[in-house]
């Protein structure tokens, strides 16, 4: 077990290193770092000073070493636009994205699991077919367009919910959160729903497949034969077992929800890290882009590592296949 953890940890570090090299090659070797990292509005003297300060006149291997040592110290450069450390800017906006992604995931479970359960129990009936049709629609609808339509209907026509910003926030452990105030929740509702649509479809399909599989198992037949009420069989025996794959996928998908928040945040003007990324791209604020990239890599590698390790704890087959 210990060896397995060490191996996986080592693999994660290798992935991080590989991505750092890729980013370095992308920014320093393919792109022109003078264009990428120095404010394009700087004049000749400032440009020369900046080149010397950033060490861009040094040989390539030296630049790589200083890039890596910067990474290890958490120094990912300074934003041109905000004139502040890039990493700090992103971390500042992370809680907003995080709470949005979390609420979207809750929506996905609350809507997707019951829908999938019903579709799995009655696959041939109209309700089951309808749910599956809706899930294909959910997969096909482009997130950004649904976001626009949500704004159109709920904010412009009906005027029920606000469509921009975070609303009122309240501080918890020194971090501002929207979900603690009613106004904040009202602001969160539409963007979170928008972000959830794709995942609702995914969870529905998984829950349906899981339900159909579990229904054929002997323990379900046995539970029925014992004379348990159908409700008990469904809510205890079926639901519990069908949730296993759903929980796994939700863990894995959390990172992708954070990534897709880029789209939702720009539509709903939600001040999270995704909106910062888009603003940085349009303003050519490259240090922020590089910092965002490295931070996301770290996030994904960590999520994958945790899911893998949790798996090996619960499923002995994973451990055994490694050691043999």
């Amino acid at each position: 077990m210990f060896v397995h953890i060490l191996t996986r940890l080592f693999q994660s570090l290798v992935t991080m290193a590989a991505m750092a090299v890729l980013v370095f090659v992308g920014v320093f070797a393919i792109g022109n770092p003078v264009d990428l990292l120095i404010n394009p509005e700087a004049d000749q003297a400032e440009m020369a000073a900046a080149i010397a300060r950033l060490g861009l006149d040094q040989p390539m291997w030296r630049q790589f070493l200083s890039f890596v040592s910067g990474l290890l110290q958490g120094n990912l450069g300074t934003s041109f636009v905000h004139n502040a450390p890039a990493l700090g800017l992103i971390l500042e906006r992370m809680p907003a994205t995080f709470e949005l992604a979390l609420l979207a995931m809750i929506f996905a479970i609350v809507i997707g699991v019951p829908a999938g359960l019903v579709a799995g129990l009655y696959p041939e009936r109209l309700v089951g077919r309808g749910i599956m049709g809706a899930s294909i629609l959910g997969f096909s609808l482009p997130t950004f367009w649904v976001g626009l339509m949500l704004i159109m209907v709920f904010a412009v026509w009906l005027g029920w919910l606000p469509s921009t910003g975070r609303g009122e926030t309240r501080s918890l452990f020194g971090i501002e959160f929207s979900f603690l105030t009613l106004d904040g929740l009202r602001h969160m509702f539409l963007p979170a729903l928008n972000l959830a649509i794709f995942k609702v479809s995914l969870v529905t399909r998984l829950a349906r497949a899981g339900t159909r599989e579990v229904l054929l198992q002997d323990y379900v037949k046995f539970a029925r034969a014992k004379g348990l009420s159908p409700a008990r069989v469904i809510f205890v025996h079926v639901l519990k077992n069908m949730m296993i794959p759903v929980v796994t996928v939700i863990g894995l998908e959390f990172g992708s929800v954070m990534a897709f928040a880029v789209v939702t945040e720009s539509i709903f003007a939600w001040p999270g890290m995704g909106k910062l990324l888009i603003e940085s791209i349009t303003r050519l604020d490259r240090p922020v882009i590089v910092a965002y990239l490295m931070l996301t890599v770290l996030l994904f590698v960590t999520i994958n590592l945790i899911v893998d390790l949790v798996y090996s704890v619960f499923d002995p087959r994973v451990r055994l296949s490694e050691s043999s």
């Binding site: 992935t15 990428l36 992708s256 990534a259 990324l277 791209i281 490259r286 882009i289 990239l293 890599v297």
Partner: peptide, 18 residues
């Protein structure tokens, strides 16, 4: 494996940013 562990949206966005 390395590539599929990241969402395609993010990879495309970063590439176009560069």
């Amino acid at each position: 494996d390395l590539q599929l562990s990241f969402p395609s949206m993010l990879i495309a966005l970063i590439l176009l940013a560069l």
